[in-house]
Amino acid sequence: MNGPKGGPLMAVAVLGLVVTFGAGWAVGQNGSDETSQAVSTPAPDITSVATPAATTPDPDDTVLPAETSTQPSDSDDYAASRIKLPSVDKWKTPPVAVFRCPKATVTVSTSDQLQRALDTAKAGTSIRIADGLYTGKFRTSRDGTAKKPIYLCGGRGAVLEAGAVKGGYSLHFDGASYWRANGFTVRNGQKGIMVDAGTGIGLQNLLVEQIGDEAVHLRTGSTKNVVRGLTIRDTGRRKPQYGEGVYIGTAESNWCEYTDCQPDPSNDNFVLGNTISGTTAESVDIKEGTKGGVLSGNTFNGSAMTEGDSWVDVKGNGWLISNNTGTSSRADGYKVLEILDGWGWRNLFAANRSTVKGSGYAVNVTKRHSDNVVLCDNTVTSAAKGLTTIDCSRK
């Protein structure tokens, strides 16, 4: 859903960390730091998707031909939004690897201690949050580095909350980059976790619940972040129309407020292996202006939606949406929308399993000639109108 998403504009950082990722989302909190080693648990099963021969160009370099003359031209105001069709294997190379929390360098047990640790953290700091209730609008603008991120770790019994569903952000990474947050609970804020202009942040194995608006929001040029293995539930308690699970970017109606009237380049973010339910709006909302992200291995339950009519709205370009499982939607499983000319193009849907129980499609591509691709390995049951609005592709 569209709507105000408050917060300042921050400078965009750049991340160069690319690693191999498997489907082992949940990991322990003790042990060594993240590595570029492949996770040993089985990867999502998309092996039925055809892959190019070794002599052909890499699939990331393949651009589908224009379907009609309605394709954006080089003179179009949004020509910069044009992007290549993603590879079906892109989910394997997330910008932040599965990680383990190292030994704590700082342990906190009060709200004041937690905020002080967030204010003074530096590259390599490892903050351990003891079990207990931490009330406040917790915020940091401190940076780690790609080689020495800052860790913020705790068990489920460590609960961060803003105090009310109108109480602001429970946890705000405000221009902060290279953090790793793992294990603890975030609840009872207007927004759960907000990332503004953050790069290389890994949110992993967190519980985010009882939120006034959206649970997790990556915004204002937040790039190359990973949201992995979260349990997200019970959003939209303040305004149901803003109750998304994960929200990427900024609605065009708010660009002039937050991004100088330009698209919000919250690009190359990965949303992997999360369980999202009890949201009043979409499980995931991918806004116009975002490019090149991955939504893979997630589980969606839309039975609580009162405002959204699909688990996922896709309004950006070049996204891979693969190997997700969804159930119960008011209309569609996934909906691709062209909010502005040149946006909502060249997204790839692969190996998703949809039990829609709604009035629409598993994948509703609302502008049929927009170079979106729905592979035939997507499956659907209980969708009144079937798999998709376009012909599925076998490769």
Rank of each mutant, 00 (worst) to 15 (best):
T223M: 09
T35L: 05
H172D: 04
S48W: 00
E34W: 07
D45F: 05
V195Q: 03
S81F: 05
L171K: 01
S303M: 09
D313W: 11
A104G: 04
V312E: 06
V314A: 09
A251Q: 11
Q262R: 04
L118I: 00
R156K: 14
V96E: 14
A121L: 05
M1R: 06
D58E: 11
A43M: 09
G297T: 00
N30I: 14
G297W: 00
V106F: 02
W345L: 09
G132P: 01
I248T: 03
V373P: 05
K315Q: 13
M1V: 10
I276V: 08
K122V: 08
V195H: 00
V63W: 10
W319S: 07
I339Q: 14
G344A: 04
V63P: 09
V312Y: 05
A54W: 10
W343K: 11
C261F: 01
K335T: 12
D119A: 07
I150D: 00
Y247W: 10
T290N: 03
L375W: 08
I248C: 04
K148A: 12
T235W: 05
N372V: 06
T325M: 12
W345E: 07
D45M: 03
A53P: 13
S109H: 03
G292E: 00
K148H: 11
G292C: 01
R346P: 03
V227T: 01
N347L: 05
L218R: 02
G22P: 06
N2Y: 11
E288A: 15
G163K: 01
V314L: 10
D377N: 13
L387V: 03
C153D: 04
Q29A: 14
Y334C: 12
N30H: 13
K166T: 15
T381C: 10
D371S: 12
V380M: 09
T327D: 08
H369P: 13
S253A: 12
T388D: 01
G358F: 04
T306D: 07
T306W: 03
G326Y: 03
N188H: 10
E257V: 14
Q241A: 15
S222M: 01
L85K: 05
W343P: 10
L160M: 01
A362R: 07
K335I: 09
T223E: 11
V159C: 04
